[in-house]
């Protein structure tokens, strides 16, 4: 089973457009959208949802108002400033927990002297299994202002793997999140390969270095490709050189193409529209297939 994860460090470099194109070119893969925070892949692959599952991520402290004696132990113990005092004068304070700040650690639950704090599981979003024109897709939606994105990413990957095994598919293509933190680490650890899609800007170069340091840290082989390379060809060369020094293999360049936005509007991947950059993506894919064997 091979699993290729497309990431970028910097956001907005074209990860999702490249991933959708790969999904179409591969034909026989399972696709997973691990950018659960801002999932866009569905806008290009237009999945038909077959299954929906609720995602519970940890727990949430909830004060039972009638039982609260207003002692303030929860306030004193909480490190996340999640306890709000709704004072109506001295001795009358009733405390509540701000769900947006609650980390789900359970310290207040434990130290409430009258056990007035419940600790239910917390609904943080949902994940879905869908059909698309290029096979099965697993994707998710993180609840508004909900945490635990790393955990949801792990579930999406696990399900994609389960489906691939069940369907006898040997490839999983993953659209990863931006950055280098929790959801990215959850997306890349244990993957066969990472493809870093970057852009020829000072920010793209800077973030590429950080993301390749991460793949080196977790010992995941990396490919790199500069998108919109012709915006600044000098920078593209610099980035490719830097990527090489950081053990990434360059798998091609993708040119700037206004058709990308048009394809998005038409709900199509780049390789399904007549476009110059679609041809570039095809060449990148061929190179990857060749190296993967």
């Amino acid at each position: 089973m091979k699993e290729i994860v497309v990431i970028s460090g910097k956001g907005g470099t074209g990860k999702t457009s490249v991933t959708a194109s790969f999904a179409v070119l591969a034909g026989k893969a399972v696709v997973a959208d691990c950018d659960v925070d801002a999932a866009d892949l569905y806008l290009l692959l237009m999945p038909t949802v077959k299954e929906r599952h609720q995602f519970y991520g940890g727990n949430l402290a909830v004060v039972r108002k009638d039982d609260c004696i207003g002692c303030g132990a929860c306030l004193a113990h909480c490190r996340f400033n999640a306890v709000i005092m709704n004072g109506r004068g001295a001795g009358e304070a009733v405390f509540t927990i701000d769900p947006l700040s609650c980390e789900g650690c359970g310290v207040c639950v434990r130290f409430c002297p009258v056990k007035a704090i419940d600790f239910p599981e917390r609904l943080c979003g949902e994940w879905m299994v869908s059909d698309t024109r290029c096979g099965s897709m697993v994707h998710a939606r993180l609840g508004i202002a909900a945490g635990n994105s790393g955990k949801l990413v792990s579930i999406v990957r696990r399900e994609a793997r389960r489906i691939a095994e069940a369907e006898g598919k040997s490839l999983i293509i993953v659209d990863g999140p931006p950055g280098i933190g929790c959801p990215v680490i959850a997306s890349v650890t244990g993957a066969t390969h990472v493809l870093v899609v970057t852009e020829p800007t000072v920010s793209g170069a800077h973030d590429l270095e950080r993301v390749l340091s991460l793949t080196n840290h977790f010992k995941i082989p990396a490919w790199a490709c500069v998108n919109k390379w012709d915006i600044n060809s000098e920078m593209t060369e610099k980035i490719e050189e830097k990527a090489g020094q950081l053990n990434a293999r360059i798998v091609g360049r993708i040119r700037y193409d206004r058709m990308v936005t048009m394809a998005q509007i038409n709900e199509r991947s780049m390789v399904e529209t007549e476009s110059a950059c679609g041809e570039d993506i095809k060449r990148v894919w061929e190179k990857i297939v060749l190296q993967e064997g």
Binding site: G150, V153, A186, T189, G190, F218, K219, I220
Partner: peptide, 14 residues
């Protein structure tokens, strides 16, 4: 004939 693992042989999943 089984070999003892001296270190972790895969990177951790999160």
């Amino acid at each position: 004939q089984l070999k003892k693992a001296e270190t972790a042989d895969v990177e951790g999943h999160w």
